[in-house]
Design a protein around this nucleic acid. Structure first.
Lengths: 220, 220
DNA sequence: CGTTTCTTTGAATCCGGTCAAGGTCCGTGG
DNA sequence: CCACGGACCTTGACCGGATTCAAAGAAACG
């Protein structure tokens, strides 16, 4: 079945350039990963470029004492694993089962040529990555627990449509993304729900009940 | 006097590619900024590329309620103001008096040509920016106040040489970079000094007394 | 169903923030 | 040369938001 069209459609046109599928599809290799499986490791040589076809991916950094920081989550269409240096600074793991398109960087260059649309695509993806990371920085440095969680839910909501969205990650991943603990995540979700801003059906499915109210929490 | 050579030398070869001076020097305009003066504003159109010639620069994001997050500090040789989008996501201000080289992005492209060394230089600078931002992310999300301050001092020390380094920024800037308050900064500095890891001579000049000890605090 | 894993909830604790003085450094002007 | 003033930094006491510890509850899985 054509996972391409299926996974590509349901995203609001807002994130990574969608042309990516068509461009690197023909020269890439598709791989499937099981839930939690590692796609590449921290400090591993970075010679490949990856694209999410189906499922979702997290990149993360592990400190020696076990503390974890999630860099970002990636969804169908997104490119990840782009690093200028020789090795990966974060590791990448599948969130649930995931289908990934993998391309050799060098192959990609010879295929599209320097300065071609492929080169440009990678450049754009890297710049977007930087923008998202800067936004994340602000969130981690200067926002309260409640603001962090509200921002997170709004961010997810923007990227998926349908009234009820399904969180592709568990509480621990949310916590490690927002720089909080799972208990705090749980409490803040409870509070947002009690305030009538969101509604949960189980711990993964939610619906935004009061978008302006949420947006007011998120500051700017 | 030749600020070029003077400000370029005293940095360990570790950060931005030094060829930058020679490459964009000829086509740029030099400007001087007073202490605290704005170089460009948040949400201003981003049509220029900047390079620090002398002094230092901070980029920052201001929230509506006055909270501040500093993105990064830039020193002689560093490029900043690179954004892929149409407008700046952070503003930039001089830290003390600063000399800045300013180049029109379009001029830069026609001068060096697509895919030339200039294009490559900008690409490299953007990727380095991303790496530093990711490191910053980890620091903000998962490090304690003490670890943050220790990391910061080591980072400064790496970039300047001479036994005694001079902090180019005040406590408020350190706080807004590390996601802390000035009081906490002050207390942590006091503690690190009491533990014999660093020594301060006035509130701006310091020396690292026990680098391995500091490195042990910084985790990894 | 039973087991395991994940999530929620409560109570106690603690790190960092807030509030409030007091000190230091510097530039200015008497 | 020193007194004054203002900006910045340090220090202390207290407070509060988030973590930690602990246990109960819900969901996922074989």
């Amino acid at each position: 079945m054509s996972a391409h069209a299926l996974t590509l459609e349901p995203r609001p046109a807002e994130r990574r350039p969608d042309l990516a599928f068509d461009l690197i599809g023909p020269i890439g290799v598709r791989l499937s990963f099981a839930a939690g499986e590692e796609i590449y490791a921290q400090e591993e040589e970075a010679d490949l470029v990856y694209q999410v076809i189906g499922g979702a991916v997290r990149t993360l950094r592990l400190l020696s004492d076990g503390r974890r920081q999630i860099g970002d989550f990636y969804y169908p269409g997104d490119l990840f694993g782009l690093e200028i240096g020789p090795e990966h600074r974060f590791s990448a793991e599948a969130l649930g089962e995931a289908d990934i398109l993998v391309v050799k960087r060098s192959a990609l260059r010879s295929y599209g040529g320097d300065g071609g649309p492929l080169e440009r695509m990678i450049w754009t993806a890297t710049a977007l990555e930087l923008e998202r990371t800067q936004e994340h920085l602000l969130l981690l440095g200067r926002k309260t627990a409640c603001e962090k969680v509200a921002s997170f839910l709004l961010g997810i909501a923007k990227r998926f449509d349908g009234a009820f969205k399904t969180l592709p990650m568990g509480r621990q991943d949310m916590a490690d993304y927002l720089g909080l603990t799972i208990e705090t995540i749980s409490r803040m979700l409870g509070q947002l729900q009690a305030d009538g801003l969101v509604e949960f059906a189980g711990c993964r499915r939610f619906r935004i009940k009061n978008a302006p109210g949420l947006a007011r929490i998120v500051v700017a």
